[in-house]
Simulated assay, not measured.
Amino acid sequence: MVDFFLGLDPLIQALLATLFTWGMTALGAALVFTTKSFNQKLLDGMLGFAGGVMIAASFWSLLSPALEMAEGGRVPAWVPAAVGFMLGGIFL
Results as ranks from 00 to 15, higher is better:
2 V>K: 14
2 V>L: 13
3 D>L: 12
4 F>I: 13
6 L>V: 10
6 L>A: 07
7 G>Y: 06
9 D>G: 07
10 P>D: 03
13 Q>L: 05
14 A>H: 06
14 A>K: 09
15 L>H: 14
15 L>P: 05
16 L>N: 00
16 L>K: 00
18 T>R: 12
19 L>T: 08
21 T>Q: 09
23 G>C: 03
23 G>E: 06
24 M>C: 12
24 M>G: 06
25 T>N: 14
26 A>N: 09
27 L>S: 08
28 G>F: 02
29 A>E: 14
29 A>L: 15
32 V>Q: 07
32 V>Y: 07
33 F>A: 07
34 T>H: 11
34 T>E: 06
35 T>M: 08
36 K>W: 07
36 K>R: 08
37 S>E: 05
38 F>N: 07
38 F>G: 03
38 F>Y: 10
40 Q>L: 15
40 Q>R: 15
41 K>F: 06
42 L>N: 09
42 L>K: 08
42 L>R: 07
43 L>A: 04
43 L>I: 04
45 G>R: 01
46 M>G: 07
46 M>D: 13
47 L>Y: 14
47 L>Q: 11
49 F>W: 08
49 F>E: 04
50 A>S: 09
50 A>K: 05
50 A>G: 08
51 G>Q: 14
51 G>C: 13
52 G>F: 00
53 V>M: 03
54 M>K: 15
55 I>E: 04
56 A>P: 01
56 A>L: 10
58 S>W: 15
59 F>I: 05
60 W>H: 10
60 W>C: 14
61 S>Q: 15
62 L>W: 05
66 A>V: 02
67 L>R: 03
67 L>K: 02
68 E>D: 14
69 M>Y: 15
69 M>K: 10
70 A>C: 05
71 E>I: 09
72 G>L: 01
72 G>N: 04
72 G>R: 01
73 G>M: 03
73 G>Q: 01
74 R>L: 07
74 R>G: 07
74 R>N: 14
75 V>H: 09
76 P>R: 00
76 P>A: 00
77 A>N: 00
78 W>L: 08
78 W>D: 04
81 A>N: 02
81 A>T: 04
81 A>R: 00
81 A>I: 03
83 V>H: 02
83 V>N: 03
85 F>M: 04
85 F>L: 06
86 M>E: 14
86 M>A: 15
88 G>N: 12
89 G>Y: 11
90 I>A: 05
90 I>Q: 06
92 L>D: 06
92 L>M: 11
92 L>T: 13
